[in-house]
Design a protein around this nucleic acid. Sequence first.
DNA 1: TTCATACTTCGATCCTAGTCGAAGCATTTG
DNA 2: CAAATGCTTCGACTAGGATCGAAGTATGAA
Lengths: 229, 229
Amino acid sequence: MKEGPDIAKIGALIGDPARANMLTALMSGKALTVSELAQEAGVGLSTASSHLTKLQDGGLLSQAKQGRHRYFTLAGPEVGEVLEALMGLAAHQGHLRTRTGPKDPALRAARVCYDHLAGDMAVRIFDSLSQRDFVSLDAETSQIALTRDGEAFVERLRIDLHPLKKGRRPVCLTCLDWSERRNHLAGALGAALLTRFQDLGWARREKASRIVHISPVGQQELLKVFPIV
Amino acid sequence: MKEGPDIAKIGALIGDPARANMLTALMSGKALTVSELAQEAGVGLSTASSHLTKLQDGGLLSQAKQGRHRYFTLAGPEVGEVLEALMGLAAHQGHLRTRTGPKDPALRAARVCYDHLAGDMAVRIFDSLSQRDFVSLDAETSQIALTRDGEAFVERLRIDLHPLKKGRRPVCLTCLDWSERRNHLAGALGAALLTRFQDLGWARREKASRIVHISPVGQQELLKVFPIV
DNA sequence: TTCATACTTCGATCCTAGTCGAAGCATTTG
DNA sequence: CAAATGCTTCGACTAGGATCGAAGTATGAA
């Protein structure tokens, strides 16, 4: 009865809502600070600090000190895979979170997922791109890439692809949207698109929140630029 | 901060030691009664009953009433996979149990991992297969596949590959063995191999346990069929 | 019917672990 | 240097939940 690795310890680590929120937030691959994670988890700073040391002691997170910040990331790909598996299981059972408050429709419509757009509009954009074969999806690795047509399209939006391609960060990534349970575009291009939309005045990020306001004009233009047949 | 499926709920379910023991016990694939699981978890009957209803409400277990017994099994293969992933992660971090338990040599030698063989012999089989290039490992995705030679070898064991290939379940998967911390073969083929060994009388599953007995003849034959240079 | 087995429910107890605020430490900025 | 920022530690509080035993329910056997 006492054989095997201690899955209870890891389960308990994931089992606290605050910690689960932190882990979910870190699944983007981005390194986040204690304060950011505290906000993400909806919990005080001291509480967050305590949780993070526990997660680190448990081997789920690793930290990198940089000046007066402490950046946390998932300890490794295995951790991410376990979380993915758990999410899959939870979603599969319809264990979706109970939705809260009137703020939610706004969040549902458009929000920021670290640095790129998520929500209804983001899903629409992704659908439009794939429908017109601007991105190609490799079914095996489930990795996506811009096609030649797609590159031309992006350049027409006056987004310079060269710096993106040179960067360390992958240009195109899919990001599974849990409110929609469908893919949207992440990666360097995803971030660049959001920046471009803001420059054009189509979208505006609400301060200290994840909500993105899309202006009436922006709405109209976005529907035109990203049509769905 | 509130998006995503509720992985905390599932984590909390797995996070209790008693429940984790029960889940681990059920990974054999066998259906177990409340009393058996209570003993397995080292906990009173009423406590076990309470845990089991929680696990069932959480969608991790399903029950089948039969007479005055209530048999519990894992709700589905996804649950088993999540548990395997957790075990792999825990083992990988050296999160082995402090209470060294019965260092049961029988369990170490051969046991069932959900529905395929694990333990010393399973690791040896996997090593033998890779040494002879019967399976190829893609370093990028760390996914494995049968080579042409491997398919021929499997057919010589009189395992019909066609139904396996048609099934939804991947034919070849690696599975990290916690006692050995090395890979062994899982997936549809892993299960088929175990079945075949039982048909040949080489292996016999102990009832209501994860132990697999390998007969002297089976031992001899397996060493012959899966040589290591 | 009567008894035995298998399990559930209830009530009481106990303890872990999450939470916050205040104070302290470390690093960068002015 | 001093002030501000980012984070940790400490102490106190509290709630949730794990546990058990006793009593209750359901099923099968004699």
